[in-house]
């Protein structure tokens, strides 16, 4: 079996929503170069809708594919959906990732969480009472496949 699914390879070879949004109002960045993965997400949020989203990623094939898929899953969607996007949903949409690459999908989830945190710190009045962004994971604790 190949290392990656066709879906992963498709999103890696032809990543969707690559780039920068100059007037983004929510920017999140997670990971570090020492570990070999950095993901940066730019969101343009209007009326509680993710009007636009773009990403930049330094990382392996699955990191790029996870970023691409995550942007697809939240683009044009209500903020609540972006808030609830999990790494599991990203992984499933990619038809799975090898166990030791699951942390790439976690990074994608966390990049969105980080962007939302940025958004609510810019507009504290919009922060839902029950929203607490999920903190970034320790890359040395790679989640096990369920």
């Amino acid at each position: 079996m190949a290392l990656y699914s066709e879906k992963v390879m498709d999103h890696f070879r032809n990543p969707r929503n690559v780039g920068v949004i100059e007037d983004a109002n929510a920017i999140g960045e997670v990971g570090n170069a020492k570990c070999g993965d950095i993901m940066k997400m730019y969101l343009k949020i209007e009326d509680d809708i993710v009007e636009d989203v773009k990403f930049e990623t330094f990382g392996c094939g699955s990191a790029i594919a996870s970023s691409s898929m995550a942007t697809e899953l939240i683009k044009g969607k209500p903020l609540s959906e972006a808030m609830n996007l999990t790494n599991k949903a990203v992984t499933e949409a990619l038809d799975g990732l090898p166990a030791y690459k699951l942390h790439c999908s976690v990074l994608a989830e966390e990049a969105i969480q980080s962007a939302l945190e940025d958004y609510y710190s810019r507009y504290p009045e919009k922060r839902p009472a029950d929203f607490v962004s999920r903190p970034a994971h320790d890359p040395h604790e790679i989640p096990e496949e369920e």
Binding site: G36, G59, C60, A63, I64
Partner: peptide, 29 residues
């Protein structure tokens, strides 16, 4: 500014088989 595994995968698409010392190709961090 780039990571080795994605470099290898794209070179493979161009027909070139190579290797890298990046963490992602070793299965460790």
């Amino acid at each position: 500014g780039i990571e080795g595994e994605s470099l290898l995968l794209l070179l493979d698409d161009k027909g070139i088989s190579a290797s890298s010392g990046s963490a992602c190709t070793s299965g460790s961090l």
